[in-house]
C-alpha cells in the first residue's frame, strides 16, 4: 500500500480533497495526457462504512490516485486491482469486509462491508 502515492494536485484547497466532479474531470485530463486510467466506484455498503455509494477513486498506471472509496483501508488493494483492470480491460467487482478472508489485511476498521466496482476508462 505504501507504493500508492497521491498525485500532485491541481485542485484548489486541500490537496487530499476532491469531490466527485473533480475526480471525473481529472480522469479526463489524465487520459488526455496519454495515461492509462482505471476508476473505482463504491456500489454498495453494509453497516458502517466510511464512504457512501457513488464515491470514486481514479488510479493511473504509476499508481497515482485521486479521490477515495474508503477511509484509506482498502485503497491499496483497489489500486492493485485497478492495475489489472488497466491491463486486461475487464471490469472487476470487489467486496471488502470483516467476513472477508482478507479481513486482516484489507478489512474495514469500522466493521462495515463495501462493494467496489473497478473499470478501465477508455481513452
Amino acid at each position: 500500500m505504501s507504493e500508492s502515492r497521491m498525485s500532485e494536485s491541481r485542485m484548489t484547497g486541500s490537496p487530499h480533497y476532491a469531490d466527485a466532479n473533480e475526480v471525473l474531470a481529472e480522469a479526463r485530463r489524465w487520459l488526455d495526457e496519454g495515461r492509462s486510467v482505471a476508476m473505482a466506484t463504491v456500489v454498495a455498503t453494509w453497516g458502517s462504512s466510511p464512504r457512501p455509494v457513488g464515491s470514486q477513486l481514479i488510479v493511473d498506471e504509476r499508481q497515482n490516485m485521486l479521490g477515495s472509496v474508503s477511509g484509506g483501508c482498502i485503497e491499496g488493494a483497489v489500486v492493485q486491482e485497478a492495475g489489472s483492470a488497466m491491463k486486461d480491460g475487464k471490469p472487476r467487482l470487489l467486496t471488502f469486509g470483516v467476513s472477508d478472508e482478507d479481513a486482516w489485511s484489507v478489512g474495514l476498521a469500522c466493521g462495515g462491508s463495501v462493494q467496489v466496482y473497478v473499470e478501465k476508462l477508455e481513452g
Binding site: 471525473l24 479526463r28 487520459l31 478501465k120 477508455e122 481513452g123
Partner: peptide
C-alpha cells in the same frame, strides 16, 4: 467506461 460517456 467509454470515452463518449465520460465526455457527456
Amino acid at each position: 467506461m467509454k470515452r463518449e460517456i465520460l465526455d457527456r
